[in-house]
Every structure is written in structure tokens, then in C-alpha cells.
């Protein structure tokens, strides 16, 4: 089965907290200086799931990403992991997209790719944490969607998934092409091999722009956005933490019990 994986390149969430920066007037989350952006972690889980399905059942895995030129980096990395092809969706008019206009461009690209039995996405992106785009792609393409799964397997044309629930999971069979979002519980993404990096290095990444995709200009980028960020800020916490004293950790533990009793918390 041919599988399409959607990717987003994001600022490295493992970067030290003190490097986190935003542009409060431009309403943007900035990449920390000198730290390379990475593939969104949940998208790596989606890539890994796609590669495992390919290894078990054959087919081709194509990764598609909407982003600036730098996003070829994420696509190259996906190809180094084993993804067969990468496609970059890039146009000046795609800038400042929200979930609605991003899903629209990705859906048009997926239509253009044409051949797929399954679209895998990360459950959310670690920069804006919206988890909207995959469901949007599914709705725009008229496909079933299942979100936040911990397992995905193929049984012929049926996709069997385990959707995570608060108190367990449910096993669902999805009949026909569909969109599935993968959670971090699903797998541990592989590292690219040296051979993979060499192979990926030689491959070209086609760039599809607005004209190539034949998109409606009113539905892309900021023009097609249905939401607007009116304020972006870093929250401040008062930090008036009361420290429990004691000569030894044992004494502090006992003093904690006394203090919580005094506050009527226990």
C-alpha cells in the first residue's frame, strides 16, 4: 500500500528552555539561534509507522511538507530514515497559514500525488499544538479519520488501529483510504543510517508552488486563515514557592507532612 506522511519542521523542543523565543508583535514562535529545527516529533512517529508498514507489506512512502526552503531539511531527514520521496509545498502566498489554509494546501497536494491507501500524520505539532490539520485534510478529501493511535497495521485494504483512550484503547478497522494520526506511544523512530543519508543526499526534492498545485489564492496562507492570533506571550509564574526546611531529607519529609496538615491539605 502506498502511504503519504505529512511533515512539519519545528523548532527543536529539546532545546534548553532559556533559548525559547517568540516574536510578540509578529505572533511567531522563533527558532532558537544556533539550534537546527527538527521534524516534529510526532511526525517522526508517523514516519516510523509508515516505514514499518512498508517493510511488512510493500508499497511506497512519500513525505510531503508545506514550509519555507529550509523545510527541505526535514524532508531529507525523512528520506534518510527510509522514506522514498519528499515533496516540498512552497509559495510566498502560503505564508502565515493557519490550520485551515495549511490543510487546504496539503489536501490539494495529496490529490495531486494521487496514489495512496493511507495518510499518516503526527497527532499534533510541538510548536502550535493544534492537532487540527490531519482532521482537516480528511474532511477536505472526504476520507475517514482516526486520531491519536498507538498502533497501526494493515489487513489487505483495511487499516486496523488502536486509538488511545483515557482508560485503555479501542481497536478500530478503517475500510478504504483514510487519515490516521500517530501518537508517541506507537514506536521509537529509527535514526537515519549512513547509507540512508547518502541515498537521500542524491535525491531531488520537487517543489510544488501555488500554480503547480492549482490552488485557490483565497484559501491559502493568511488569506485563507480562519483564525487570527491576537496576542502571543510567555506566561510568568509568581514563583513564591515555600521551601520546607530541615537538616536532613528525612526531616524535610516529616516537616512536609506537618506543614500540609497545618494547611489542612491532608
Amino acid at each position: 500500500m502506498d502511504i503519504i506522511v505529512t511533515l512539519k519542521q519545528v523548532p527543536d523542543p529539546e532545546a534548553p528552555k532559556e533559548t525559547f523565543r517568540i516574536d510578540e508583535s509578529g505572533m511567531k514562535i522563533l527558532n532558537p539561534p544556533n539550534i537546527d529545527p527538527v521534524i516534529n516529533g510526532y511526525d517522526e512517529n508517523a514516519i516510523e509507522a509508515a516505514l514499518q508498514l512498508k517493510e511488512a507489506a510493500g508499497g511506497k512512502v512519500v513525505a510531503v511538507s508545506m514550509g519555507e526552503t529550509g523545510a527541505t531539511r526535514a524532508l531529507k531527514q525523512a528520506m534518510a530514515m527510509g522514506v522514498d520521496e519528499g515533496i516540498l509545498l512552497q509559495d510566498e502566498s502560503f505564508a502565515d497559514a493557519d490550520a485551515a489554509s495549511t490543510a487546504y494546501v496539503l489536501a490539494r497536494a495529496i490529490e495531486k500525488i494521487g496514489s495512496y491507501g493511507l495518510i499518516l500524520c503526527g497527532r499534533q505539532a510541538s510548536d502550535w499544538d493544534q492537532s487540527q490539520v490531519p482532521s482537516g485534510i480528511a474532511e477536505l478529501l472526504g476520507l475517514p479519520s482516526v486520531t491519536a493511535v498507538q498502533k497501526v497495521a494493515l489487513q489487505g485494504d483495511t487499516v486496523r488501529v488502536e486509538r488511545i483512550l483515557e482508560d485503555g484503547y479501542e481497536v478500530l478497522d478503517i475500510h478504504g483510504p483514510c487519515v490516521v494520526t500517530v501518537s508517541n506511544e506507537a514506536n521509537k523512530p529509527r535514526y537515519p543510517t549512513l547509507k540512508g543519508i547518502m541515498t537521500a543526499g542524491k535525491k531531488q526534492i520537487p517543489v510544488w508552488d501555488a500554480a503547480e498545485l492549482g490552488v485557490d489564492a483565497a484559501q491559502v496562507g493568511s488569506a485563507g486563515a480562519l483564525t487570527r492570533v491576537s496576542k502571543l506571550y510567555v506566561p510568568s509564574f509568581d514563583g513564591d514557592c515555600e521551601f520546607i526546611a530541615g537538616e536532613t531529607p528525612e526531616e524535610m519529609g516529616a516537616n512536609l507532612a506537618l506543614r500540609l496538615r497545618e494547611l489542612k491539605i491532608i
Binding site: F237, I244, T248, L256, R259, R261, I266
Partner: peptide
């Protein structure tokens, strides 16, 4: 500690059992 109301700087391996023992005594 920026988000905590109460903090203990110490090893949980020692703090928690002592906390549990004192709670048992108090309660």
C-alpha cells in the same frame, strides 16, 4: 519550583518514606 507551592530540595528516596511515616503518625 517556579510552579510549585511548596518545595523540598532533597532526594525523594529519603523524603517520601519519611513523609509517609509522619503522615501515618499524624493521621
Amino acid at each position: 519550583y517556579q510552579r510549585a507551592n511548596i518545595g523540598i530540595v532533597g532526594d525523594y528516596k529519603k523524603v517520601i518514606p519519611a513523609f509517609q511515616a509522619k503522615c501515618a503518625e499524624l493521621l
